[in-house]
């Protein structure tokens, strides 16, 4: 019976590790067609034709490419065209894919600074900004895959140590196992909450950035609806719904209203990461 229980545990362990491995497996297909589009984008950048480069990047996006380098280059192309809102969106997306990339972080900080400067010059005040939650900011530098793997690891450690704790008669070992199980359970919960924060499980909506130069926040989802205030490029807010071609948004100062779909971009659209 002991041998059977041991083999059961080994199988369970391999099942978990195997699933982690499968989760990390990255499909990296780069067929000739996509390479050709990429080359087109690069040539356009060299020629200073940033509009064409962005068009090629859009083709890559439609084909399902989600590469931090492509996102970064696209953000820089938007910057050259002084489209600061779009540049911020693509830098944020690039950062989401490559959280440890210092160049992306630096470019994002500089672009944000540029936006503030531009606002200041135009006497429009500070851009609206909804700060990231504590959990999001603390887990921002950890990839979601890594968070998932760590959650599984700590969960496994927790359950194994609890099982050994129940089985063991050695008092010292039981104390050690009690500590290990407690800490690993806390860390497991922290990883789960971190994943939830990264995947915006606890968020009221999706974070978004205004990419039009300015847009009118309306009281209803209609162009004839009363305008409440002007939202400017680079302002950040939450998209909490969608009605008749308008996004319902909530601003950081709790003001709510409707914005035209084309005027904004959601920072982390589904299935793009």
């Amino acid at each position: 019976m002991r041998a059977a229980a041991r083999s059961f545990r080994v199988v369970a362990l391999f099942a978990v590790l195997g699933s982690i491995g499968l989760g990390f497996a990255r499909p990296t297909s780069a067929d000739a067609g996509l390479r050709a589009i990429e080359q087109r984008a690069h040539q356009a950048i060299r020629a200073g034709d940033y509009e064409s480069a962005i068009a090629a990047f859009e083709d890559l996006e439609r084909a399902g490419v989600a590469d931090p380098n492509i996102y970064y280059d696209r953000a820089l192309a938007h910057l050259r065209l002084n489209e600061l809102g779009k540049a911020i969106v693509w830098l944020e997306r690039a950062r989401f894919l490559a959280p440890f990339d210092a160049e992306i972080q630096s470019a994002l900080a500089q672009t944000t600074s540029l936006l503030r400067e531009e606002r200041e010059n135009e006497n429009h005040g500070e851009p609206l900004y909804s700060p990231e939650s504590f959990l999001t900011s603390t887990t921002a530098l950890i990839g979601k895959d890594l968070l998932g793997a760590l959650a599984l690891f700590f969960e496994l450690v927790c359950f194994i140590s609890v099982f050994l704790l129940i089985s063991s008669q050695n008092e010292r070992l039981r104390i050690a196992l009690g500590l290990v199980s407690s800490f690993s359970f806390i860390l497991f919960l922290a990883m789960l909450v971190g994943i939830g924060a990264r995947l915006e499980w606890f968020s009221e909506g999706n974070r978004a950035v205004l990419v039009a130069k300015e847009a009118v926040l309306r009281a209803g989802p209609d162009e004839a609806a009363e305008g409440r205030r002007i939202i400017r490029e680079g302002d950040r807010f939450l998209v909490i719904g969608e009605r008749r071609g308008f996004y319902e948004v909530r601003l950081p100062d709790a003001d709510r209203g409707f914005l035209e779909r084309d005027s904004l971009l959601i920072l982390r659209p589904k299935r793009t990461d």
Binding site: P27, S29, I45, A66, D73, L76, K144, I195
Partner: peptide, 25 residues
């Protein structure tokens, strides 16, 4: 060079669900 240089290289990594978003997780 203003606000960084273009990278002009990529792995053309395809969009995928991250591990925690998959049912396998």
């Amino acid at each position: 060079a203003r606000l960084g240089s273009f990278r002009l290289r990529s792995d053309l990594r395809m969009s995928r669900r991250s591990f925690p978003e998959q049912p396998l997780f």
